[in-house]
Write a protein that binds this DNA or RNA. Sequence first.
DNA 1: CGGCATCCGATCAGATACTG
DNA 2: CAGTATCTGATCGGATGCCG
Lengths: 140, 140
Amino acid sequence: MEPGHSDDTAADHVHRPSDCRVVGTVLARIGDKWSILVVMTLTDGPRRFNELKRLIGGISQRMLTFTLRGLERDGLVTRTVTPTIPPRVDYELTALGRSLQAPVQALGAWAFANLPAIQHARARFDGVDAAPETGEAQVQ
Amino acid sequence: MEPGHSDDTAADHVHRPSDCRVVGTVLARIGDKWSILVVMTLTDGPRRFNELKRLIGGISQRMLTFTLRGLERDGLVTRTVTPTIPPRVDYELTALGRSLQAPVQALGAWAFANLPAIQHARARFDGVDAAPETGEAQVQ
DNA sequence: CGGCATCCGATCAGATACTG
DNA sequence: CAGTATCTGATCGGATGCCG
């Protein structure tokens, strides 16, 4: 951060690019397609690797590993290895990871509530774009 | 206070995969690297194309156009064309777009508040991976 | 069981040039 | 000024095979 901002006063709702970049950075991480699902799946408690893979469904082993690594790197989940045979690895949310659930669920609530509006807007946008006034200009 | 920590608060915050998919879908859209910056930049009011480009900074025309198209398609922003010379195009948030700001800013607040913790976790993760300290060879 | 390495197609994203 | 189109490199992401 650079001190000496003579631009604005202590208005906390100012959205400087620097602040937006922070949001963008975090969203680039947790806004990832799979990260959010992993965090939500870990709500109930620790889960094993293949357990997560099965619960989420549709995620490949590669992506799950990659996602868990990213979350572990950011301190959102912990990775506990039990060196038995067969080996057992448990993933669990940290306090930081659990604190993320509140804003994420708020966003999820917004998504769930406004999903019909978004779908309607999409259909209208595509419809207007595809069928202006010509009788037979139906393109995909 | 609560004798049992595994209570569900009797609320409906169950995280079924179907619900999580909805969150994932929305985050795939607004969790985009640039979409969130555009929405935040449009907070103060309507902006022109190059005005947005200059305010955001670091975004190419291609990405800004693509992002604005996506937001317009989802009904989050409106595109108003004034057929003058030179042409003038204004982008403005819709009611749906403005309603998105609350949860996004909540997430932004979380990001801003926990950024030090995340950066520290990243440094520790990378440091442990690259330079194991002497005395505590507790790797693996 | 958990995880890594590799190959390979699909998509993303920047730079550039051109049009109305 | 506000786009569109194209080329190109980078990244994403799945499938497979191997190892501890």
